[in-house]
Write a protein that binds this DNA or RNA. Structure first.
Lengths: 142, 142
DNA sequence: ATGCACCCTCTAGTCACTAGAGCATCAAGT
DNA sequence: ACTTGATGCTCTAGTGACTAGAGGGTGCAT
């Protein structure tokens, strides 16, 4: 065992990813199958830490695993033009913008719902009322 | 068959919900089991349209089905104080606010990633670079 | 009578994990 | 050397909210 070698638990700490998640990534082929000790325990090197951190960061940014696979493939071939990575990131950015806009509209509706509520009985409840009658809703995107 | 009665397909159109989704809601008990024709087809009345529209609107607002069940229960008992409905809506509003804040931070990082990218090769790609080295990321919430 | 849209049930798949059972192994302290 | 507790292993099944598909039956218009 090399000095820099890590058990799955240490890798998990080094990349801040849970142990079962690492095994799951291996199962779906996102992480390569590692070497094993004689007693069948996984052994990882520094490259695994790099790769797993990349994955974790991309997941936190909301990239799907398919996209991460593509990005990892690109990162491994530094001579390719980076237009593809850019395309993936830009299309993700668009999706995030759309999501923010949608959540902001939603927030307004929720705020209107709760602003005059919490004191009376259900019959006069703004929350129930707004949910019951879509015509009361000021949102026009659905 | 009453004049106002609807097949599942007509109900789907009336509430703008897909047919399999209605059957799914019935299966999990969110929609009541409807009457059937002699040939086993589901028959719905006006109440089903109301309920399904309520569900659809609440889902669009991002409420979970558990919450919707609770809200439906409250809507059926108009004499209860509406504090509970208000509590559900307010806690959902908080979650939405948090999500918007999170997505906004994320958006900034993505925008920084893509702003100088798309022209060179992968080795110089900002997207890959930022994902590879978390230290380059300005976000502090992870 | 023929076609076509609609309806039925049932199973399995999606996504990215998470939880749990049941067992083996390792590291540290006594 | 022994024990104890953390960590490791595999495997299956569950989550949420649907969605897709197989394989068939029904309703209505031409």
């Amino acid at each position: 065992m090399h000095m820099a070698d890590l058990s799955i638990g240490r890798l998990a700490k080094a990349a801040d990813v849970k142990v079962p998640t690492i095994r799951f990534y291996e199962q779906i082929g996102l992480m390569p199958t590692p070497l094993r000790t004689q007693s069948d325990q996984r052994v990882y090197g520094a490259a695994a830490v790099q790769r797993l951190r990349f994955i974790r960061h991309a997941r936190q940014l909301g990239f799907e695993i398919k996209d991460i696979e593509a990005l990892l493939g690109l990162a491994d071939r530094p001579n390719l033009p980076c237009a593809e990575a850019d395309r993936i990131a830009r299309s993700h950015l668009e999706a995030v913008d759309e999501k923010i806009a949608q959540l902001t509209r939603l927030r307004e509706e929720l705020a209107r719902m709760t602003i005059n509520c919490g004191l009376g009985v259900t019959a006069d409840c703004k929350v129930i009322e707004v949910l019951s009658d879509h015509g009361l809703c000021h949102e026009d995107r659905h």
